[in-house]
Simulated scan of single mutants.
Amino acid sequence: MGSNNFIADINPDSMEMETMMESRPSDNINISKKNSTAPQSINHQIFAGSWNVGGVSPPEVLDIQEWLRPNHINPPANIYVLGFQEIVPLNAANIVVRSENRKICEKWNSLIRAALNDPDSKNNITQDFRCIISKQMVGILLSVWVRSDLCQYIRQLSVSCVGCGLMGCLGNKGSVSVRFWLHETSFCFVCSHLASGGKEGDQRRRNANAAEILSRTTFPPGPFPNFTTKILDHDRVIWLGDLNYRIYLPDATTQYLVEKQKWNLLLEYDQLKVELMEGHVFEGWHEGVINFAPSYKYYKNSELYFGCDEKRKHNKRRAPAWCDRIIWFGKGLKQNQYDRGELKLSDHRPVRAIFMAEIKNVSMTNIHVNGDQTSIIEHKLQLLCFDHKKIQNNIYQRT
């Protein structure tokens, strides 16, 4: 179910090619040892957010700054990775036809753009974030936004979709994944909606969905040997979404502990925590400390959990749970924040995490091409368009 049919502010192919062609290689190439630098790294903050919006189309007046920019401060990150689930109702027509509802995607992207690029009210500083990719599969939407001055350093941007819902392949459940290189560090972001259900054994279906996503997600191999093609091949990986894991307790007990805000006790029975500890899923992955209330299940436009209002009758009771999660894999990621927003559009609350990501700097090793500096990685990309042997022989002769 891989696809390159996506929308973005900037054509990813043109972003890459423009940088590739800035300095046209010629015979006048040499490596400058005098100006080469020791390996360096830079840090960028990454905001990862996930929200199951319950098939509700967002009103034009919906203000998502509370989620993306708490207290209306400057955006706390340089890269925003926003995943949504159920942006359309998961009915038979949407699942089987798998039509991409461009209008609903544009609505969400318009709200994101307004929230990120709204001037800082204190300093009147206008930000410039651009959507580098936005991809939908049925109800899943993954939208990635980058500060405009960083766009030129992004390479090998691609997407991969995996459906593991009805019949094991339809897109009512599954994932949309995005990968790219920033400078000389590879990133992969996975937005997923795993199997639902609070019955005994449902957690095994969620585990199976996660394993399917890891095994079936593939990206184009790229121009170099051993290039990243699978999720775990990348340097920094963040997985977000409605993972749907519940709590191993009777509903009444869960409700009581939620009312008392006994998060530590509840987390001892959280399915994802238990499955992680027992090695059944996400081996080697990490999750930050949870100090916030369960994100599911609420009455819409309410602060009440489903089933807590005695005036409303229900055929089903849905105990609160931390269905919406953000986890990560790999070194070079430090989580600085993990909490939730309080938007009430759906029966889920959005969650967010802010990471500090270590990134290999593009200036780690310098090559001079006609007097212009470029990185080893950029130069390798340039070589694709020209005569390999001639240029390489010239480099060896001059060094």
Rank of each mutant, 00 (worst) to 15 (best):
Phe187Ser: 04
Tyr269Asp: 09
Asn226Asp: 14
Asn35Cys: 05
Leu68Glu: 06
Asp149Leu: 00
Gln255Tyr: 11
Val362Ala: 12
Ala92Asp: 12
Gln335Ala: 03
Ser192His: 03
Ala210Gly: 03
Ser143Gln: 05
Ile247Arg: 01
Val146Tyr: 02
Gly163Phe: 06
Leu333Gly: 12
Val274Thr: 13
Ala211Ile: 06
Pro119Ala: 13
Pro76Thr: 01
Ile42His: 02
Cys323Val: 10
Ala211Lys: 14
Gly241Leu: 10
Gln255Asn: 14
Asn94His: 14
Ser110Phe: 01
Ile29Val: 15
Leu257Val: 02
Ile7Pro: 12
Gly163Asp: 11
Leu68Cys: 13
Phe386Asp: 12
Cys308Arg: 15
Ile104Tyr: 00
Arg352Phe: 10
Phe292Gln: 05
Gln335Lys: 12
Trp67Cys: 08
Gly49Ala: 11
Ser375Trp: 03
Leu111Asp: 08
Phe180Lys: 12
Trp285Ile: 06
Leu170Phe: 14
Asp202Glu: 13
Asp242Pro: 01
Leu267Thr: 05
Lys103Arg: 04
Ile87Trp: 00
Asn11Trp: 07
Lys389Asp: 09
Leu116Pro: 15
His388Thr: 09
Tyr80Val: 00
Ser57Asn: 07
Ser215Ala: 10
Tyr299Glu: 13
Thr126Asp: 07
Val97Met: 07
Val237Met: 08
Thr374Cys: 15
Ser148Phe: 03
Lys135Thr: 14
Ile359Phe: 02
Ile31Cys: 05
Met1Asn: 12
Thr185Lys: 03
Ala321Lys: 04
Leu276Lys: 15
Glu184Val: 01
Lys380Leu: 15
Asn91Ala: 00
Tyr80Pro: 01
Gly222Arg: 00
